[in-house]
């Protein structure tokens, strides 16, 4: 496969003596959608915050397209789009204003801003609400806008933390097909605890439990191995056994 677009190497995050993320290493390749699974509190969000430079790791390194996040945060972050658990939206701006701001801050060239914003709106189905205030948007639209701000600068790596929480089934379907589409040219990390979402949208899956990466495989080979039980069986086995262990 081609060079990895994102490399996490031995990431550690400690809170006092407790390691929320414990030596996590993985790679992400171009055109790939990686499903990031784990029970609540497994350290998924903490990992994503470290991947995006929102939280400094206690140890380990992150490279985005070969650029070290700690040494060259500016270059690395320009290649990164991030939707956190709570979409970071300014309620007092309109959709257009917000996306233009996102494009500018991510150093999209002056002449390309309008086209970049139009494309992001098109992809996320936001064309009709461009002039609306964000505070007046429904939850589904806010979630879409959250994705739009993450992809407006056409980043090589897109990181989405539970993008479909609180959406209705129809919207979930739209977002999933959008994620699949994104996987065509960008690399995507999708964190979720909805298993069917991973099965429908991802190429590869990794499961995290209690700060450690406990499982990594492609979805295709998983299907061959586990038969009909599939992902759910693996997930339950890996995350439950550790919790019930003495």
């Amino acid at each position: 496969m081609s060079n990895p677009t994102l490399t996490a190497h031995n990431l550690v995050r400690r809170y006092g003596p407790h390691a929320a993320v414990d030596h996590v290493s993985f790679e992400l390749h171009r055109g790939e959608v990686l499903g990031f699974l784990g029970p609540n509190g497994a350290g998924k969000s903490t990992t994503m915050q470290m991947l995006t430079g929102n939280l400094a790791p206690s140890g380990g390194s992150v490279r985005i397209c070969g650029v070290d996040l700690r040494e060259h945060p500016r270059e690395a972050k320009a290649r990164l789009g991030y939707l956190p658990e709570t979409p970071p939206l300014y309620r007092d701006l309109t959709v257009d204003e917000f996306l233009i701001l996102a494009a500018k801050l991510h150093r999209v060239g002056k002449g390309e801003i309008a086209a970049a914003v139009a494309r992001a709106k098109e992809r996320c189905g936001l064309k009709k609400v461009g002039r609306k205030l964000i505070g007046a948007l429904s939850k589904g639209y806010r979630q879409r806008l959250g994705i739009a701000q993450a992809i407006v600068h056409n980043p090589e790596v897109v990181i989405l933390d539970e993008p479909t929480v609180g959406l209705d089934p129809l919207q979930i379907r739209e977002i999933r097909s959008l994620i699949r589409e994104l996987g065509g040219e960008h690399s995507v990390i999708l964190s979720t605890h909805i298993l069917p979402e991973v099965e429908s949208a991802c190429d590869r899956v990794q499961i995290m439990n209690e700060g450690k990466l406990v499982f990594q495989d492609t979805l295709a080979s998983l299907k061959e191995q586990a038969g009909s039980g599939g992902l759910e069986e693996v997930f339950v086995k890996l995350t439950l056994s550790e919790e019930t262990a003495p």
Partner: peptide, 14 residues
Amino acid sequence: RDRTLTFLFSAPLS
């Protein structure tokens, strides 16, 4: 409070 600080921290800004 509104959790929008992430937007600035994730952007390529010092």
